[in-house]
Design a protein around this nucleic acid. Structure first.
Lengths: 214, 214
DNA sequence: CAACTTATGTGACTCAGGTCATTCAGGCCC
DNA sequence: GGGCCTGAATGACCTGAGTCACATAAGTTG
């Protein structure tokens, strides 16, 4: 256990890792499981050990919108933020692969913040990264048209999955972008005709030159 | 000076305030002055003492988009974030009233974080608030139509200005929402016809029931 | 008050993107 | 093979919102 943590969170000092191993609880989740739902009370900070988690915002009327992905070594900034005022979550999180996460009771965070400088840096670093990603998302929806956003999202999916082949239906992608299936289908078809990718059922294969472009 | 700081930042411990007074530099800016521009190198963290600062994101092609306002007692989360990796700014900031800000060299932040628990809480609290505001902004542009966003923004302007009378041209508002003047004019006119507000040159007066509604 | 400058009002047109209806194709099970 | 289900393709249509062009109004200055 301590070895695993050491490997995933090399930026944290040893004494902290030991404490983490002691008080943290590992939770295994399967692809599709919801970790946190909007409005749910948050009791723990979440550190991702393996797998991949997507964090998204939901609207009252069923729409959803992808905010960012969490990968091993990341922590959920939102959970840490809510931790501070022990509030309810403003986003939902769902595993997109089978994953393991470490739950840390949030009452410990305050003292760790002062005791472990590596924890301090870790938390702030995570805030920073999530904040920047969130700013990027704002950029996208504020300034970009849907086809540009789709491109961006495909690259993000490929990067997150570590492969140029994306396993997802058009519907899934439409959901992430809060758009509709037909529109995404049309845009994808256009991109296929341009030779940027090729389409299969439930699967999109990005061409080299497209995937690398940015 | 120390008295002023004590008044604006009562959440910070006295020894920290003394140090702040010593190393911080006060800068006076006039309404319309740009404090930070996108891409500029950041050397200091910014604490707002008086006035009102707007923080916004710019696109390559001239568009801009309001992210949030900073009021006295707030700190610029972005500047603290960039501080960590001493990077360039990803947003711009402009004074919307004559304002005073306190500039703190960012190399001090790291040590303060460990030495002063009040600073630690202050920084994290600021992150949290900005993060939540940013999430709200994402919500707005992802799920809301322009008329709803306009309503939201008018309420925000009124709240920020501390008055139901908003001093701004339609063009200003269009800029904040990354929209166009004509469209905003049309929507405002509709809202006036509905009795939600009344329009004057360079000035919008919200009716009680509208301003309070949320 | 005449000349200007800046803010606002309005109609006509365009277009991206959402919605609806329907058809088609791939995979799967009996 | 014949149903059956889910995912994908496609055309018709609609609407919100951006753009263009121009008309007015409201201040400002000399």
């Amino acid at each position: 256990m301590i070895e695993l943590l050491k490997q995933r969170f090399p930026m944290l000092e040893l004494s902290l890792l030991e404490e983490l191993a002691e008080v943290g609880k590992i939770r295994h989740v399967q692809a599709g499981d919801e970790l946190i739902q909007t409005g749910q009370y948050i009791r723990s900070t979440v550190l991702v050990i393996s797998g991949s988690i997507k964090v998204f915002r939901e609207s009252e009327d069923g729409g959803e919108f992808l905010v960012y992905y969490l990968r091993p070594g990341n922590a959920c900034a939102v959970s840490m933020i809510c931790a501070m005022k022990s509030d309810t979550s403003e986003v939902s999180a769902m595993a997109i692969e089978d994953s393991e996460v470490l739950l840390v009771p949030l009452e410990l965070m305050d003292s760790w913040m002062m005791r472990f400088s590596s924890w301090n840096r870790f938390v702030l670093g995570n805030y920073r990264e999530r904040f920047e990603e969130l700013l990027q998302v704002v950029d996208q929806i504020a300034f970009r048209s849907l086809d540009e956003r789709l491109e961006f999202h495909l690259r993000r999916l490929a990067k997150n999955g570590g492969s140029q082949t994306i396993q997802a239906s058009h519907q899934d992608i439409a959901n992430d972008l809060n758009s509709s299936r037909e529109v995404i289908s049309r845009l994808l078809k256009k991109m296929e005709q341009k030779g940027l990718l090729s389409l299969q059922r439930n699967q999109i294969i990005l061409k080299e030159h497209f995937a690398k472009h940015d």
